[in-house]
Design a protein around this nucleic acid. Structure first.
Length: 604
RNA sequence: GGGGGCGUAGCUCAAUUGGUUAGAGUCCCAGAUUGUCGAUCUGGUUGUUGCGGGUUCGAGUCCCGUCGCUCCCGCCA
């Protein structure tokens, strides 16, 4: 007989009754009847009830075993009598009658209950190895593994091969903050962890590999959010040669539709996913990652208000403000407090105000109705599709502010009115992103996305158009209001790239210096290529219907980018620092600002 | 860097308007208990109310500061 187990804790059924079996696992629950002891034994696969009879020599020892200790039990598998069957357990028709019992590892009392959902998160993170024993989290990590496996399989089936790329590479000036790794051999020089394998995957295309994918670790030193883990995250990194945008879309639609259909119970939008130009998304949804489950679409009504009697809007429009309508069906019967609170909320997120009109009882009511002529009201009614009982809210401000605030209000209305379509994943592509945007802070034109994207119209557009009107072959895939991934048709022409960077204020030698490999490679025969990188963590998060990304990562860092279990980051020895030619220059600590800075030591 | 929320026993929570010695469940410890499956019953231990200061006759409660966690903004080509 095997030393630890003949079966797992999840597989025994009535058919094996009478057999001699051995199980190993954790003591999940104990029910001590004094002259009879039940132990629910748990492993990765399930739960099996062990019975210890009072005449066994190890009975008292078994009574004293603490929860979560690891034991090995040998005995005869017995069918339970009908009245003692537990229909809630897959193994509920049998139990293991212990003939011998070995404690492999006695557990200390736990810092929190494994059954308890509400343990404080810092405690869960510090004892993540315990937290991971909890069924829900355990299942999510298993699901993550299954999702990744399925993705690899689907990509292989579509003709892709997985290639690895370096983790220690060089820092590049664009994008997020880099994680840096000092070089011992080259004093004063640093490696950077890749923010993504962007340049490597493009180089693989230049090397002729044609169809690349990788479940790639990406490292960005940026602050966390609920859906953004600090430190590292994983992407399904994809790159293809000799393709057009639609080829990328088709591959991604196959993967995403496949994964979401296989692993989720919700319905999934059929491919091809809806395509929405960036400008249209910003107007209709106030966002470049619209939640299409909410049946509210904004409408531009600037022209109707341009010459109206509502002076507040008219004056603002003269100062280049726009007016957007948020039409909402069937809420005229809401109490006054509903509207007051919404106005208050709008102001709290930066709105100057929130006007609205109510179509009720055959007339138009609301704070601004008296300023508008019948023809203007009629125009608003038809433009916004208003009927009896409907309400339209108006927001007037500069376009950026209007988009941000109406986009926020749309999400809030959808949630508060319970109008988010349940049980479905609504996918879309956002396409035609602008190539550049104007950076108000530095008063200059900058890339709005990936600088390696191909501008629509190529060199001609770069030479002749106002940069802010140039679109890029740049696209995002979005699901239920969450950006799952971003990609682009790459710019494989050095001449176009130099021009594109020049517009964003980069001298040619600066471009050469920052991207030497890629630019150089482009001069030796570069295939047109394109790619994308959907986020794995976010995918799994959505499949589990979790709002926090830490819930789908086995060993996540906390919001301040600390691993509380491993105590990372931590101090290193002076010897290590000396080898790296590094001397610390620490800021004064906050607790004791008056004490002089400690000797730059870093012991540990 | 900025804003919001939270912080009471190992864990989950309670504590009237600022008013007695801060309670309950769970865990843990001891005992009882032969069919439970969140077993049950009896008894017991467990507190710098995050920390520091202030107001007050009196602070878990009010005020100020600070620390920690978290959500958001900035940031995330």
């Amino acid at each position: 007989m095997h030393g630890y187990r003949t079966h797992t804790c999840g597989e025994l059924r009535g058919e094996q009754a009478g057999q001699e079996v051995r199980l190993s696992g954790w003591v999940f629950r104990k029910r001590d009847h004094g002259s009879l002891l039940f132990i629910d034994l748990r492993d990765h696969y399930g739960l099996t009830q062990v019975v210890v009879q009072p005449d066994r020599s190890f009975f008292e020892h078994a009574q004293s075993i603490r929860l979560e200790s690891v034991i090995t039990v040998t005995g005869r598998l017995a069918a339970r009598s009908p009245e003692t069957v537990n229909p809630d357990m897959p193994t509920g028709t049998v139990e293991l009658v212990a003939e011998s019992l070995e404690v492999d590892s006695m557990a200390d009392p736990l810092p929190f209950h494994l059954s308890d959902e509400d343990a404080p998160e810092d405690l869960r993170l510090r004892y993540r190895f315990l937290d991971l024993r909890r069924q829900e989290l355990h299942d999510r990590i298993v699901l993550r593994s299954d999702v990744i496996h399925h993705i690899r399989q689907t990509m292989r089936e579509q003709g892709f091969k997985e290639y690895q790329t370096p983790i220690l590479t060089s820092s590049s000036p664009e994008g997020a903050r880099d994680y840096l790794v000092p070089s011992r051999v080259h004093p004063g020089k640093f490696y950077a962890l890749p923010q993504s394998p962007q340049q490597f995957k493009q180089l693989l295309m230049l090397s002729g590999f044609d169809r690349y994918f990788q479940i790639a670790a990406c490292f960005r030193d940026e602050d966390a959010r609920a859906d953004r883990s600090p430190g590292e995250h994983y992407q399904l990194d994809v790159e293809m040669s000799f393709v057009e945008q639609d080829d990328i879309f088709k591959v991604v639609e196959t993967v995403l539709h496949g994964v979401f259909s296989k692993f989720a119970t919700w319905k999934v939008d059929a491919a091809p996913f809806r395509r929405i130009p960036y400008r249209e998304a910003m107007l209709k949804y106030g966002s470049d990652k619209p939640d299409l489950r909410i049946p509210i679409e904004m409408v531009d009504v600037t022209d109707i208000f341009r010459n109206s009697g509502f002076n507040a809007f008219r004056a603002a429009i003269e100062q280049k403000a726009v007016v957007r309508a948020i039409p909402v069906k069937a809420i005229a019967d809401r109490p006054r407090s509903f509207f007051d609170k919404l106005v208050e909320y709008a102001q709290s997120i930066g709105a100057k105000g929130l006007a609205y009109l109510v179509w009720e009882g055959g007339v138009v009511k609301g704070p601004i109705a008296k300023f508008l002529k019948p023809a203007e009201l009629e125009a608003l009614r038809t433009t916004c599709g208003m009927g009896e009982g409907d309400v339209v809210f108006f927001m007037c401000d500069k376009e950026g502010a209007v988009n941000r605030i109406t986009g926020d209000l749309r999400l809030k209305l959808g949630r508060d009115l319970d109008r988010v379509e349940p049980g479905i994943y609504r996918f879309c592509w956002i396409v035609d992103f602008p190539m550049y945007e104007f950076d108000e802070e530095n008063k200059q034109v900058m890339f709005s996305h990936n600088p390696f994207s191909m501008p629509q119209g190529g060199l001609k557009a770069l030479s002749e158009q106002d940069p802010l009107t140039i679109l890029a072959y740049q696209y995002d895939v979005v699901c239920n209001g969450i950006e799952l991934g971003s990609g682009a048709i790459r710019n494989h022409r050095p001449d176009i790239m130099m021009k594109a960077f020049a517009i964003a204020g980069y001298e040619p030698d600066a471009v050469e210096r920052n991207f030497p490999a890629l630019l150089n490679a482009f001069r030796y025969g570069a295939p047109p290529h394109a790619g994308i990188a959907p986020g794995i963590d976010r995918m799994v998060m959505m499949l589990c219907d979790q709002s926090n990304i830490r819930e789908v990562i086995a060993f996540p860092m906390n919001q301040r980018a600390q691993d509380l279990m491993m105590n990372a980051p931590n101090e290193v020895s002076i010897k290590q620092l000396r080898e790296l030619h590094i001397r610390l220059n620490l800021p004064p600590t906050k607790e004791a600002p008056k004490t002089p800075p400690a000797e730059p030591s870093g012991k540990g």
